[in-house]
């Protein structure tokens, strides 16, 4: 089957090539296609390269507007300062904690919901499915949710960062569908005949077999935790609990953490330096994603595909 398809494809490619070189309109068309792709590539790359180049330039060169796509007067002073800033260190540590703890809770909750829902003989299946699905279309909104979290005493605690979003219904549905179509029901029948209970079956059979989807889910959840600032803004008050994104917001958007030097000359210097600091902050803030990106990209695409095709 696979071999057949490959043969057909290779024939296709050959015919396409022949066709492509014969017609002028097709040639113009391919030119258009290439222009679109090259401009997409360049437009996406320019801001990223600019930020990267600026973060390695001198503060004076940035302020004078001399930096384009290559570092001017190369130096790493911005980065040196960032790694000395305790707020960023604490924020980084908090974000790692929230992401780790949050993702573990997410995966446990998602599996606990997805497995019973994948069992067609589970009695409460349709009721629970409806109960869950409704929440995808209706929600209480910002203020009632805030009041709930408040009345549960979660304001300004670690729990406010990991419990209110302990599970996403959409991800449960994708995971359920994956288990349903990839782990045959006979496996359960065999196991249960041998006296295997559901909990044991999930831990010993379902989890190992569902590893690909668990990896996708862990990534989706983890990226969500790492990038979110909204819940922290709503529910956290004390600075020592702030995740990295809040610290980044204060530096990048609210221009905080600069101090107020008295003499004018130093003030200018500080101002220039604050420009540089923002560029290196952007890079440090997205560094974990940049490092992980090449590895996680294909899992992400797989996750989108499963969601799109089965959902």
């Amino acid at each position: 089957m696979a071999v057949n398809e490959n043969i057909i494809r290779s024939i296709n490619v050959k015919r396409r090539t022949v066709n492509y070189y014969t017609s002028i309109s097709d040639k113009l068309y391919m030119l258009l296609v290439n222009i679109i792709l090259w401009s997409a590539l360049i437009v996406v790359l320019i801001p990223i390269i600019f930020i990267l180049a600026s973060s390695f330039s001198s503060a004076e060169a940035i302020a004078a507007g001399r930096v384009f796509l290559w570092p001017v007067e190369f130096n790493t002073r911005g980065y040196q300062l960032i790694f000395k800033t305790s707020a960023i260190k604490f924020g980084f540590r908090n974000s790692v904690l929230y992401t780790g703890l949050g993702t573990i809770i997410n995966i446990i909750m998602t599996m606990l919901a997805a497995y019973p829902l994948s069992r067609k003989d589970f009695q409460g299946r349709s009721f629970v499915t409806v109960l869950f699905s409704i929440t995808m279309f209706f929600s209480g909104g910002m203020i009632p949710t805030y009041l709930l979290i408040r009345s549960l005493g979660m304001i300004d605690t670690v729990w406010a960062m990991v419990i209110p979003n302990a599970m996403a219904v959409w991800n449960v549905i994708i995971t359920r569908t994956y288990i349903q179509s990839n782990i045959p029901h006979e496996l359960y029948e065999c196991a249960s005949l041998e006296g295997c209970g559901d909990f044991y079956y999930v831990i010993r059979i379902v989890v190992p077999l569902a590893k690909p989807i668990i990896a996708v889910m862990a990534l989706l959840y983890a990226v969500g935790h790492w990038n979110s600032y909204f819940n922290a803004m709503l529910y956290l008050r004390s600075e020592k609990l702030f995740p990295l994104q809040i610290i980044l917001r204060d530096i990048l958007i609210y221009n905080m953490g600069l101090g107020s030097p008295q003499d004018v000359e130093r003030q200018m210097e500080r101002l220039y330096f604050s420009y540089l600091l923002k560029y290196s902050t952007i890079i440090v803030g997205s560094l974990p994603m940049m490092i992980l990106y090449p590895f996680v990209q294909k899992y992400f695409i797989r996750g989108i595909m499963i969601g799109a095709l089965k959902g």
Binding site: P116, L131, F138, G140
Partner: peptide, 26 residues
């Protein structure tokens, strides 16, 4: 099927509190 119910208990409680709770709060 008590084990299945035991499993789904936590997610159902979660949904009732954190999704339906705020709806009541409207």
């Amino acid at each position: 099927q008590w084990q299945l119910y035991a499993m789904i208990l936590l997610p159902v409680v979660y949904i009732l509190i954190f999704a339906y709770g705020p709806m009541f709060g409207i």
